[in-house]
């Protein structure tokens, strides 16, 4: 493999990895606060992609408006999921909330099949994003560079928000101790809703970029990226935002590079993530950057 080809794979891996990372942030924030695997997160990602598809291709709205509609729409869906399926179960055993999450995910997938039909639809990529240019011998399209760039900017903004603003402080506080935070006068439900909103918005952005890169949308497109992003969150250390990004990037690199170097393993591509998951859980269950979660006795 020559250097140029390697760089090509490198950029691909960076793009895929940062998309996994963006989705993983939603998982890691919700898990950090509620100890709940939000199974519906991958489906919010799918909805984001579908909304932008309908807005720009079906209804011919301008791209900027379409993007805004998709992000706002997916965020509202995320909030609704929290309100309907998770909030009634805040005091229930965690496993009940988990089953509810599975139910919601199943619901969004199936209602999407009913509304959007199960057929995959092609997405028209804006030509300006696809004009190939050469950078030191590596052929690139602007989209391939935009995806990681946007992702990193968003993560930086999020980190600023979590570590430098009041709502961010409340979020971190809830993840330590939800009851005490409530006693301090923080409106816990509102902060949790904010967490869902941020996670969903990031998932929607990831969904849009995913739909542009792999130009098609289908109702079940969120399942695999969703699982893999959760694995990325666990790998990076659940509860940690930089960890989620790191986990996403690691997963992206493992997937792209293993197939690049061993092409006959491509059928097993989807298995790598799960093998990675089981390995990290056995070696270091807290993930790369996670803090140890003690079970309370």
């Amino acid at each position: 493999m020559n250097l140029n080809l390697f760089m090509q794979h490198f950029i691909n891996a960076l793009g895929l990895g940062s998309l996994y990372g963006l989705i993983a942030i939603g998982y890691t924030m919700v898990y950090g606060i509620l100890r709940l695997i939000n199974f519906a997160h991958g489906d919010i990602f799918m909805l984001g992609a579908y909304f932008v598809f309908f807005a720009t291709i079906q209804y011919k709205l301008p791209w900027a408006l379409g993007l805004a509609i998709a992000v706002v729409g997916a965020t509202l869906c995320g909030l609704l999921v929290d309100r309907i399926a998770y909030r009634p179960l805040r005091d229930a055993p965690r496993i009940s909330a988990l089953i509810s999450a599975i139910g919601v995910s199943f619901f969004i997938e199936n209602i999407s099949i009913v509304i959007f039909s199960g057929m995959p639809r092609p997405v028209v990529q804006p030509p300006s994003l696809m004009q190939a240019f050469s950078l030191g011998g590596v052929r690139l399209v602007p989209l391939a560079l935009m995806v990681p760039a946007i992702s990193f900017v968003l993560v930086a903004a999020l980190l600023w928000m979590v570590y430098r603003t009041k709502p961010g402080l409340a979020m971190r506080s809830i993840s330590y101790d939800i009851e005490t935070t409530r006693l301090m006068g923080v409106s816990v439900d509102r902060i949790i809703a904010l967490t869902f909103a941020i996670g969903s918005a990031l998932a929607a952005v990831a969904g849009i970029m995913w739909a542009l890169r792999y130009p098609r949308v289908e109702p079940l497109m969120g399942i695999m990226p969703g699982f893999k992003a959760f694995i990325a969150a666990v790998f990076g250390g659940i509860g940690s935002i930089p960890g989620a990004m790191l986990g996403g990037l690691s997963l992206g690199f493992v997937e792209i590079m293993s197939v690049a170097f061993f092409p006959n393993l491509s059928g097993f591509k989807d298995a790598f993530a799960f093998i990675l998951l089981i390995a990290i859980l056995l070696i270091k269950p807290t993930g790369l950057m996670g803090e140890k979660l003690e079970d309370k006795i």
């Binding site: 100890r35 709940l36 695997i37 965690r94 988990l98 699982f227 959760f230 694995i231 666990v234 059928g267 097993f268 989807d270 298995a271 993530a273 799960f274 093998i275 998951l277 089981i278 859980l281 056995l282 269950p285 079970d295």
Partner: peptide, 24 residues
């Protein structure tokens, strides 16, 4: 290996194994 984990991690890990079996 997996039952050394508890709770939701167990769910995800078993899901992972089930997917690996299917891919195999």
């Amino acid at each position: 290996p997996v039952l050394r984990l508890g709770g939701d991690y167990l769910g995800i890990a078993t899901l992972g194994f089930s997917e690996i079996i299917r891919i195999l």
